[in-house]
Simulated scan of single mutants.
Amino acid sequence: MPGTAFFWRDPALPHVESRRACHSRACYKPHSHPTFSIGAVDAGGSIFTGSKDGKVALGNGSLVLVPAGCVHACNPLPDAVWSYQMLHLDAQWLQAHAPALDDDTATVLHCPRLYAQFCAMHALLFSTASAGEKNAALLAFLADCAGARADLLPSERKPLPLQLAPVLATLQARPSASLRQLAQAAGLSPYQLIRAFRAATGMTPHAYQLNMHVNRARSRLQTGAALAQLAHELGFADQSHLQRVFKAHAGITPGRYRDRGS
């Protein structure tokens, strides 16, 4: 049975986006989101990387809380399929409405009650209920999420080395800057920059750039952007290049992502 994916977005609730994937074999490169993400495993098994515990096995009913900017990946077991649900929340909205969840380390929860509540809330998002009802259910779930992990020790935030601050500033100003330009900004050789950047962020500079492009593509696709124009805007060689990179990060082609969210 081929895998299927369903997206939900509502202009009345711009701070949340939802996804369901059934019988999926999609594998993801290590990546990050500008959003706070919550995933739930409905069937099958997978391996999650990105928490302080290293690789963590997930099964039916597992929940994963992934902070904005946290490099992670979650892939099915070899030669197997899995089904899951994914929720993405605007990071600033989360900080204002559920600050207890605003952390920098991914958390895995195995709580049947919380999983059942997540499923009910997620189903409500896909229903014809009012925006007010959906938002109330979301806030209630987040409050219970915070309670479920309240006994976990807070993580120690690791500030980015000051030497790399000019690199991130360059990437924000020029997302397609070359490795040599980034190395010059940091006063390092390209090889030194790759090692230092990977140690600090979990990605090489090139992987970080691709991840930035994919996250920008997500935002533009939600407005119905044309793929050829988007590929040009983001500095991809062509539309096919955009499609390959986007699918490797999101598990779905940009065209399907755009059309299924409409």
Rank of each mutant, 00 (worst) to 15 (best):
A150Q: 06
A80Q: 11
L58C: 04
A148P: 11
L87A: 00
H88G: 15
W93M: 03
P78E: 14
W93D: 10
D144S: 12
A73P: 05
V81R: 15
V56P: 02
A106I: 00
D144E: 13
H97C: 01
R149L: 12
R113Y: 11
A116K: 13
K158E: 09
H110R: 05
A80M: 08
L63R: 03
A140H: 09
S127P: 01
R113K: 11
A137Y: 02
V66P: 00
C145Y: 02
S155D: 14
L58F: 04
D102P: 03
S51G: 11
P112C: 04
D144H: 08
L160H: 13
A143T: 14
K134V: 03
L77F: 10
G59D: 14
L152F: 01
K134Q: 04
P99T: 04
A73I: 01
V108M: 02
V71E: 11
D151Y: 05
Q117I: 02
L89S: 08
D102L: 02
E133Q: 15
H110V: 06
K52V: 04
A100H: 11
L152G: 02
A100D: 12
S83I: 01
N75A: 12
A146C: 07
L114G: 08
L124W: 03
V64M: 02
S83C: 06
P76N: 02
N135P: 02
N135K: 15
C70D: 13
V64R: 00
L124H: 01
G59K: 10
H72F: 14
L58H: 02
P67M: 04
A98E: 05
A129K: 08
Q95E: 10
L139A: 09
N135M: 11
D104R: 02
G147L: 12
T107E: 14
T128C: 13
L152V: 04
A137R: 12
P67N: 00
E133I: 07
S127W: 08
C111A: 13
H97K: 12
P161S: 05
A98F: 04
P159Y: 14
